[in-house]
């Protein structure tokens, strides 16, 4: 049960009206399910909260004023784990991870260790000082690029990510295309992420992907590989928005009503372990942001990590987990089930 898990104090008031009424683990139990991990395939490293943007839906509360970023010492511990345990995939996120001085070290070393590297790249960081060569850097290291573009129109994108972001994002996508990203047979993968611009669920992934492909190609001549639909999770800045706009109850009700047991098997927390900027371990990036740690009996730091101890672990959950199990489900790789 969630109440037995190590909930660490957070400044933000919890989802009290809903957590008390509908417990996520009880919902699973009602479907004769529980949430346990499989083998770890991905180490998702959040290198810090520093970002050149301050998006309204950001579950990290990232912004240009944040100072919490991973040190080289912790980055070395991450690389040591990738080496020692032959971690198949290193997924680097932030903030804007490129702004961390250890970012290129992490990419280069993880690739040297044979890992597939994914970077959650916000596109506009390419226009920050000393970042102009990012497309070439990504290409050199065959990084898989995953970039947020909440909609193919300026109004919606700027409403979520800030004024001027759409225009810069389009230019960044063109630059990525120019070095081969998203182009057929280049082998360079450029995936986009759709987030709803507000308090509603994403559309069917295949349907909106077709729209994005058609509109981005027709309007801007841009190509990409796949579109991932990701649900906004009711924590941090998005929860603040829900509360300010009077949408918290309605949104939580929507998530709980849309609970889909078919999403459980494909949830990212089952095959991923999340590492924060201090090297602490979490079941996912969302748990990391609300300081909901991995089970107490497990190692808490990347320095003590051993995948054998984490396979089969019980995942720490909370009311926010309804965000990943609503409708078609949501993960870092988009939808995980058919919409029921």
């Amino acid at each position: 049960m969630a109440r037995d898990l190590p909930i660490i104090e957070t400044k933000q008031a919890p989802l009290i009206p809903f957590a008390g009424r509908v417990d996520f683990d009880e919902k699973l139990a009602a479907h004769n399910m529980s949430l346990r991990a499989a083998a770890i395939e991905t180490l998702q490293v959040n290198v810090g909260k520093l970002c050149n943007q301050a998006c309204k839906h950001c579950h990290v509360d990232a912004s240009p004023t944040r100072t919490e970023i991973m040190t080289r010492e912790v980055a070395k511990q991450v690389i040591a784990a990738v080496h020692r345990f032959s971690i198949p995939t290193l997924d680097i996120t932030g903030g804007a991870p490129e702004l961390n001085p250890s970012f290129r070290f992490l990419v280069t070393e993880a690739r040297a260790a044979g890992a597939h590297v994914m970077v959650r790249h916000n596109l506009t960081v390419m226009f920050e000082p000393e970042q102009a060569d990012l497309p070439e850097f990504f290409r050199t290291h065959e990084v898989e690029v995953i970039s947020s573009l909440p909609y193919f129109l300026e109004r919606e994108t700027d409403a979520q990510r800030g004024r001027g972001v759409f225009e810069k994002s389009i230019e960044a996508l063109r630059r990525l295309n120019r070095v081969g990203y998203g182009m057929k047979e280049s082998g360079l993968i450029l995936n986009l992420v759709y987030n709803p611009v507000g308090a509603f669920l994403p559309p069917a992934q295949s349907s909106i992907e077709a729209d994005f492909k058609r509109e981005l190609s027709n309007r801007y001549g841009i190509a990409f590989n796949n579109l991932y639909t990701i649900t906004n999770i009711p924590i941090k800045r998005f929860l603040d928005y829900l509360r300010r706009s009077g949408n918290e109850e309605r949104y939580m009700h929507k998530l709980i009503e849309a609970f889909n047991p078919q999403t459980i098997e494909g949830l990212m927390c089952r095959t991923l372990l999340s590492v924060d900027w201090q090297g602490r371990l979490f079941d996912c990036d969302f748990n990391q942001m609300i300081e909901l740690g991995v089970s107490r009996e497990l190692p808490q730091s990347i320095a003590d990590f051993d995948p054998a101890l984490f396979a089969g672990r019980r995942i720490s959950t909370g009311a926010h987990c309804f965000g990943c199990t609503a409708g078609a489900g949501s993960s870092c790789g988009g939808a995980v089930a058919a919409i029921s």
């Binding site: 129109l153 069917a204 349907s207």
Partner: peptide
Amino acid sequence: QSCLESGSNM
């Protein structure tokens, strides 16, 4: 809401 959640824009 249905329009938004099926991908329509304003």
